[in-house]
Simulated scan of single mutants.
Amino acid sequence: MAPPKIIKALNESEVICTYDEASNPIIPKKTLRSIGKDVLDVFLPAGYPHTVTPDYTPYQIYDSLQAFSSTIASLLSSRAVLQGFGVGDSTSSATAAVLLTVVQESTGRLATIFFAHRHGQAIEPECKYYRFLADIVNDSAFFLDILSPALPTYPKILALCGAGVLRALCGISGGAAKASLSAHFAKNGNLAELNAKDGSQETVISLLGMLVGSLFVHFVHGKMAVVVSMIVLVGVHLWTNYQAVCSVQMRTLNRQRLTIILEEASSPRGAILRPDQVAEKERILTWVGPRITFATTFPRLREISHFKNQKYRNRGYVIVQQPTGQKIFLKQGTPTMAALEAWVEAHTGSHWPADSTFWKSLKAAGWDLQTNAMETGPSVRIVMGDENKSA
């Protein structure tokens, strides 16, 4: 008997189908491994792991763990909020609870508008920072919630409104940062499916968390027990979230990542770090960069004189020296590389041409040089009059 024909998927090691010598398909028996794979396929992007970046798996594992502990903590918080609204108190009215809810929701939505206006442009370049920050403010809201039942009327209102504001900030910060991370993970044009599967994962984790949390809140009642439990849950939540964020290997160059690369390139080793190597050195909350900023307002009179410096005539930027540091003005119509070149010159004190070995090495190391992740505020562009005349 001739051996069965085997058809394999391109770039895959998994057998799609086998045929006998009469060209009849041989249906393999279901095993626990194949059943488990079928279940995982419901929650993972099609073609996993080839259609996502390598850091997708560790991020999702830690993200699932942090969502599980957060769900349990939210149940303790929700019970405290209901107590704060007067549930179970014969002296409280439904109208007062509704009015308090309206005030809490209103302050939260106003905070969302203000936060999006002030920090919206910074979320994508600093998505790891804002993803972790979202859970810090959300956990802070939990503590305000469990504190509220023990407070007098007016402090209670302030505490519940403060919790609403923090929760709203978590929503806008975490949601926007998560969208940026999803765009990073999706490498096969599968962003929509990846987000859909991520929603499925969160649903299952939330259901498991509510199941365990229901038993948890049934046995935890005392004030001290609630506080201690919340501290433990929040500690686990923040640790797993921090590990999730640290596992992400962004390929775009923001201020911190480019500074890390420059410091390593100027060291005796002179190496160009890859995205995974830079991710190990990144700091999520505590990084303090050099005193270099990008202009977020139009030039002041004392700054205009710097634009006459001839060395910036054919460059896409102008660097203004100030007592507090250096300010970079980008010219209108300049490519993304201008922001990177300007940061390099401001940091090193020398101009590295865009076609130099340095930029080629960055691209070869896997860095994205086409996405502007340097500016975290309003994008201001200047027009050089002399250059326009000469053109």
Score class of each variant (00 low, 15 high):
80 A>T: 05
56 Y>S: 03
111 A>G: 08
118 R>D: 12
74 S>C: 06
67 A>C: 13
110 L>T: 14
74 S>N: 09
123 I>R: 09
71 T>G: 01
121 Q>E: 11
52 V>L: 06
53 T>D: 14
115 F>Q: 14
107 T>M: 10
112 T>P: 00
117 H>G: 07
78 S>L: 12
101 T>G: 13
126 E>R: 15
69 S>P: 02
120 G>V: 00
119 H>D: 13
96 A>Q: 15
64 S>P: 09
99 L>C: 08
79 R>F: 03
101 T>R: 11
84 G>I: 04
69 S>N: 05
51 T>H: 11
75 L>S: 14
91 T>E: 10
78 S>A: 15
54 P>T: 04
84 G>E: 05
52 V>A: 08
57 T>C: 03
62 Y>R: 09
72 I>E: 01
58 P>N: 08
102 V>I: 10
58 P>E: 05
108 G>A: 05
120 G>C: 03
128 K>E: 11
61 I>S: 07
95 T>Q: 14
71 T>C: 02
90 S>I: 13
105 E>P: 01
79 R>G: 11
82 L>G: 13
81 V>M: 14
76 L>S: 06
52 V>K: 05
70 S>V: 08
70 S>I: 13
118 R>N: 10
105 E>S: 14
62 Y>Q: 04
120 G>L: 03
112 T>I: 12
53 T>A: 14
74 S>I: 06
79 R>Y: 01
126 E>D: 14
63 D>V: 01
110 L>A: 13
124 E>I: 08
71 T>Y: 01
122 A>I: 01
121 Q>G: 06
51 T>E: 10
98 V>C: 03
107 T>C: 13
67 A>Q: 06
88 G>L: 07
58 P>I: 02
114 F>E: 08
102 V>N: 06
93 S>V: 05
54 P>C: 04
87 V>Q: 15
90 S>W: 12
99 L>E: 12
116 A>L: 10
65 L>F: 07
100 L>I: 03
116 A>P: 07
104 Q>D: 07
100 L>E: 04
57 T>V: 06
109 R>V: 09
94 A>D: 11
115 F>L: 15
122 A>H: 10
102 V>Q: 07
81 V>K: 10
112 T>W: 00
114 F>K: 07
67 A>K: 09
118 R>W: 07
108 G>D: 00
55 D>M: 02
76 L>A: 09
88 G>R: 07
104 Q>T: 06
117 H>I: 12
96 A>S: 15
82 L>I: 03
83 Q>L: 14
116 A>R: 04
102 V>W: 05
109 R>G: 09
97 A>W: 11
120 G>D: 04
89 D>A: 07
75 L>R: 13
97 A>L: 02
107 T>K: 00
128 K>Q: 10
52 V>Y: 08
126 E>N: 15
103 V>W: 10
103 V>N: 07
123 I>D: 05
62 Y>H: 12
64 S>L: 08
72 I>F: 03
94 A>E: 15
122 A>S: 15
91 T>S: 09
53 T>C: 10
68 F>C: 11
62 Y>W: 14
120 G>T: 02
99 L>V: 08
72 I>W: 02
118 R>H: 11
102 V>P: 01
120 G>E: 06
81 V>I: 13
89 D>E: 12
90 S>P: 14
79 R>K: 15
89 D>Y: 12
75 L>C: 11
59 Y>P: 00
88 G>W: 14
61 I>F: 13
82 L>D: 10
65 L>V: 08
